[in-house]
Simulated scan of single mutants.
Amino acid sequence: MANEDNIIIQRVLSGDTQKFGLLVNRHGPALMTFVGRIAQQQEDAEDVVQNAFVAAYQHLMDFDPQQASLLTWLQRIAYHEALYHLRKRRRQVLLPLDVGDDVPDELPETATAEKLDEAIQKLSPEDQMLLQLYYFDERPLKEIAYITSSSSDSLNREVSRLSSRLHRIRQRLRIILTRMNNE
C-alpha cells in the first residue's frame, strides 16, 4: 500500500489533483478513528480530519516516505490539528497533581474501564493522545515521537522524553482514580 500511496502522491504533485481523493478514501477512516477517540464528538472529529487533509494536500510536497509511512505522516498532521482544535473548544481541566515517590505502581483495584475512561478525560488533550497512541494503537515510541514532534529534534531525545512523560501520565491517572474512589 505504501508504494501505491507514493504513486498517487506523485500523480497529485504532477497535476492530477483528483487522485488526492483516493488517499482521503484510503486513510480517512483510520484518521477518524485516531481523532475520534479524543474528540468524542463526531462533528469535531470530522472537522479535525478535514483540516488535516487540507493541510496534507497543501504540504504534500513535504512528505518524505523515507521518514514515515503516509498514514503516520497524516496522523502527525491530525495530531497537531486535534490539539489545536481541542484547546480552542474546551478548557483544559488542570488538576494540581503532586506526583511524588508515594504514588503506587498499579491502578486501584476498584478501577473499572468506565472509571479509567472518566479519569483519562480529565487529562490534557496531549496526554490523552499519547495514551491512545501508545496503549490503544500500540505504536512504538519512535513512531509516536515522529507523530507528536513539532520540530526536527532528535528522535532519540524525543523517545526518551516520551518515555518519561508516559510514566508521569500513568502516575497522574493513578492519583485521579484514587481520588475518584475516595469521593
Rank of each mutant, 00 (worst) to 15 (best):
H27Y: 15
Q128F: 06
Q50H: 12
E106H: 04
L95F: 11
L123K: 01
L162H: 02
M61D: 14
G21W: 00
R172N: 02
K115T: 14
S160Q: 11
Q132I: 13
T17W: 04
L31T: 02
V99I: 15
D64K: 13
E118Q: 15
D5Y: 07
F136E: 15
L116H: 05
M1H: 11
V24Y: 03
A56C: 09
I8C: 07
L162S: 03
E158N: 10
Y84D: 12
K122W: 07
A111K: 03
R90F: 11
R91T: 11
L70A: 04
E43G: 08
L74V: 08
N181E: 14
R161I: 11
Y57G: 11
R87I: 06
D44C: 02
N3Q: 14
L162C: 05
Q58I: 05
N51D: 14
F53M: 09
K19G: 00
E138W: 04
P65L: 11
L130H: 00
V103W: 07
L70V: 06
F63C: 06
T148L: 04
Q128V: 08
H85R: 13
S154G: 05
E118N: 07
Q128K: 12
Q41R: 14
R90Y: 12
D117Y: 02
N3G: 00
L74H: 01
S69C: 06
V48H: 03
S149D: 07
L130D: 00
L22C: 03
H27W: 05
A30Y: 04
R11K: 15
V35D: 00
I8Y: 01
R157H: 09
G28A: 03
T178H: 04
I176P: 00
L95C: 03
R170K: 15
Q92D: 04
D101H: 08
Y134E: 07
Y79K: 03
Q42D: 12
D5G: 03
L13I: 11
A78P: 01
S151G: 15
D62A: 14
A119H: 02
I120K: 07
L86M: 15
L60M: 09
K88H: 13
L70S: 03
R168F: 08
M1V: 13
S151K: 14
T72R: 04
S14W: 01
